[in-house]
Every structure is written in structure tokens, then in C-alpha cells.
């Protein structure tokens, strides 16, 4: 299995459904000091007139060459053979936070015992033929579970669509 979770930044509206669906799936309770595996950021940028906003839903990206794996001093972070994702063996984690500084996405968080807690790609669901909880819940279709090639072709199709639209719109203008 080589599928992973992608975010279509253009479609994310920061609703947070993915964050909650992940907590429901994984029994994560913030009131017990348990961190979320997924977070939503709102990004505002000042423009000439007002601001631009966009949203990001970010969890472990399951990088192909994961920097956290290389930084982990104990070998607690490894690639899971079954899912192809980056998995944590909590019994090896010493809570040193080396993965925090290694992760380019600011993903690592630590549970009440101080051990790394993160997205496991909903491996049990995926094995059962279901989508990861965050992907399933996303009301805007912003989170996509697929392999890299399919996502690439999706993006290309969208780009082609846009070009077609621009041509069409300009054509209308000339009529």
C-alpha cells in the first residue's frame, strides 16, 4: 500500500471536521491533556486591499524519506511495512523531542506520558478497505487519500479544467 493523505489547499476552509473525526476515531480527549494528531491553521496575509486567508489541515505527512525517522535516537519511528506510513513504537520513545525539530511540518506532539503521538494513517481502517477518518469526514473534499501518481493526475486534470475554463470565458468575452 502506498497511499497517503494529501491536502488540496485550495479547498480547505478550516472547518476542523478532520481534527475532530481523528479524535473520535483515535479516542483522543483534549481535556485529558492528549494532543490532537491533526491541526488546522488559519493563515492571514496582508494584501494591498484587506487580507488573504487560507487554511491548512496538517497531520503527519508520512514523508517518503522521513526526517523524524533519521533524527530519532532510539529507532522508535520507523516505516510501517504494511501501510507504508511512518509509525511510532511508543515503547521505544523516550520523549526527547528530537523529532519535533526534525519535522518540517511541525507535526510531533507528545501524549500525557511524554511520548510521540501522531497519525498512523488509520492503518486498521485502511486495511479494512475504509478511508482514514479525516478524509472520510472532510465536507469540502480537501483531504484526499490516494497514491502520489493519482494525486498528480488529479491536480493535472484540475489544471486542464482551469485552462479550458479560461479559454471558454475569454471566448465568451469575444462573442
Amino acid at each position: 500500500m502506498d497511499k497517503t493523505i494529501y491536502l488540496d489547499v485550495k479547498r480547505c476552509v478550516g472547518c476542523g471536521a478532520c481534527v475532530v473525526a481523528c479524535m473520535d476515531q483515535n479516542d483522543i480527549y483534549p481535556e485529558k491533556g492528549q494532543p490532537a494528531n491533526r491541526r488546522v491553521y488559519q493563515i492571514e496575509e496582508n494584501q494591498d486591499q484587506g487580507i488573504d486567508i487560507c487554511y491548512l489541515s496538517v497531520a503527519c505527512q508520512h514523508c517518503e524519506d522521513s526526517p523524524c525517522t533519521m533524527a530519532c535516537p532510539t529507532g522508535a519511528i520507523r516505516r510501517d511495512a504494511a501501510t507504508g506510513g511512518v509509525a511510532v513504537n511508543k515503547s521505544l520513545c523516550i520523549g526527547c523531542h528530537s523529532c519535533a525539530i526534525a519535522c518540517p511540518f511541525g507535526v510531533p506532539r507528545y501524549d500525557a506520558e511524554g511520548k510521540l503521538q501522531k497519525c498512523n494513517l488509520c492503518s486498521e481502517r485502511v486495511e479494512a478497505g475504509l478511508e482514514p477518518a479525516c478524509v472520510r469526514v472532510c465536507p469540502q473534499g480537501a483531504l484526499i487519500f490516494d497514491n502520489a501518481n493519482s494525486v498528480q493526475s488529479l491536480k493535472e486534470a484540475a489544471a486542464a479544467n482551469n485552462i479550458a475554463r479560461i479559454i471558454r470565458t475569454q471566448g465568451d468575452g469575444c462573442n
Partner: peptide
């Protein structure tokens, strides 16, 4: 656990953070 029903013609299997 909860999830959106795919049958529903409006939500089509999805939910918002409140429903989730």
C-alpha cells in the same frame, strides 16, 4: 464512533466538526 452517511444526498458521507 460517528461518520457521515454516504446515502445522505446533502452531506454525502461528510460531517462538520460539530457533527463529528
Amino acid at each position: 464512533k460517528v461518520e457521515g452517511s454516504k446515502e445522505n444526498p446533502y452531506s454525502k458521507g461528510t460531517l462538520c466538526s460539530k457533527g463529528a
